[in-house]
């Protein structure tokens, strides 16, 4: 029996572990090694250089103009994007499930909630490049851009420095697009969780004299805690990979003047300008960056599960 159990465990683990070791673990270990060489991607005689690449990335002007803004931007995205998406999604989900007028003590969502659920989700099924190209056309900087045309229609003059070409807002716009495309999914996800909360709980809470707002914070949110945590992790992964949108939407893929640089884009830049070892070093920085943030957020969000 014991033997059979061992055999069972092995047979179930061998494929996933092998696939994972070959496709995920081993390339990462190799990349760690490359980050400590002077491999350009084309020089056969590269050698071990220790931490030179890392030193350069942080202290040499030529490299730090890419790395430092990218670190800041990723940190910003990682904090702001999930918070906003989750807040919006929770708000919408609450509206759609509980926000409607009460009729005979029944708790319901607002009218048209089915319609909203379909529409809000839709951006999520679009391919990320379609989203990028679409918003690129919307934010086109001259008067042929969609947004500028709309503004002209209501009599607001075209924004003189463009949208994506304005260093002060380009990153916010990228984030807006990320939010635009993900809110729907989390709305459906949260509202699924909300609909599984027994309506008696709401009704009891309301009979106790709690307002909707109070109900939301006192009843709904605690019960959704696990879903929120799941969403947080997944959104965190997306926030670190803002590269696709930056690549498609922003001027000079990270510009203007590095004001929408993200770590993935910086890696891409170094790979494609024959500095493969530096690219790997950026990846290693990204790894430790992520690791730190995960540690911090795990500590911050550790708490007991709420049972009901």
């Amino acid at each position: 029996m014991k033997q059979r159990k061992g055999l069972f465990i092995t047979s179930f683990l061998v494929l996933p572990v092998a696939l994972y070791a070959i496709m995920v673990i081993s390339p990462f270990l190799q990349a760690f090694y490359y980050s400590m060489t002077n491999w350009t991607g084309t020089n056969p005689n590269y050698k071990f250089v220790g931490l030179d690449n890392f030193k350069r990335l942080f202290t040499n002007e030529l490299y730090s103009v890419y790395l430092i803004p990218a670190l800041k931007h990723n940190a910003f995205l990682l904090i702001a994007m999930p918070v906003i998406v989750i807040a919006l999604a929770l708000f919408f989900a609450f509206m759609l499930n509980v926000g409607g007028r009460s009729r005979g003590s029944r708790i319901r969502g607002v009218g048209g909630s089915k319609f909203y659920k379909i529409v809000f989700f839709f951006p999520q099924v679009l391919s990320v490049t379609v989203v990028g190209v679409l918003w690129g056309a919307i934010f086109r900087s001259d008067e042929y851009g969609f947004l500028n045309s709309i503004l002209a229609l209501v009599g607001i003059p075209t924004k003189p420095s463009g949208w994506l070409s304005d260093p002060d807002i380009v990153l916010l716009l990228v984030m807006l697009v990320m939010i635009w495309s993900s809110v729907g999914f989390y709305l459906v996800y949260f509202s699924a969780a909300m609909s599984s909360i027994p309506t008696e709980i709401y009704e009891a809470s309301m009979l106790d004299g709690a307002s909707r707002v109070q109900t939301f914070f006192k009843v709904t949110l605690p019960l959704l805690f696990e879903s929120v945590q799941t969403a947080w992790i997944y959104l965190g992964i997306i926030a670190l990979d803002a590269f696709a949108l930056v690549f498609v939407m922003t001027p000079e893929q990270g510009g203007p003047n590095h004001s929408s640089e993200v770590l993935g884009g910086v890696m891409y830049h170094y790979f494609s300008s024959s500095k493969a070892a530096v690219a790997c070093a950026v990846g290693v920085v990204l790894f430790f960056f992520t690791l730190t943030l995960v540690m911090v957020s795990l500590r911050a969000t550790r708490r007991e599960r709420v049972e009901y």
Partner: peptide, 27 residues
Amino acid sequence: EAGDLTRRSVLKTSAALGLLAVPAVGL
């Protein structure tokens, strides 16, 4: 040293690495 390392990590290589193709050239 470099030669050994690359011989180990480089494989028969004839196809493309898409946009990131270049690092392969040296290998």
